[in-house]
């Protein structure tokens, strides 16, 4: 299935901004983090199609996964 992975802030370093690729069915956000060598503790916000995602919930074809490190502002 096709997934779009968007990375932000420091997570872009050495990985890029947007990754669009084919992934096996039942791929989870956890699998994606592992494939990108991103540790779970470095992820503060994980969104699937703009809403809070779950690490172990399989993604669907066409999903967009957005991953942010701890950041803030006001």
């Amino acid at each position: 299935m096709k997934l779009t992975i968007k990375l932000f802030a420091t997570l872009r370093e050495g990985r890029g901004k947007i990754l669009e690729d084919e992934y096996p069915a039942d791929t989870t956000p956890k699998d994606i983090l592992a494939s990108l060598k991103i540790e779970e503790k470095d992820v503060a916000i994980l969104l699937v199609n703009g809403v809070d995602g779950e690490l172990d919930k399989p993604l669907n074809d066409g999903d967009t996964l957005s991953i942010f490190p701890p950041v803030g502002g006001g």
Partner: peptide
């Protein structure tokens, strides 16, 4: 993570992409 890295590195503007997403 926010006050020690996020805010010093990117300032408050790092929220643009988050809130837009």
């Amino acid at each position: 993570g926010v006050t020690g890295e996020g805010l010093p590195t990117y300032g408050t503007a790092v929220l643009v992409n988050i809130i837009n997403e």
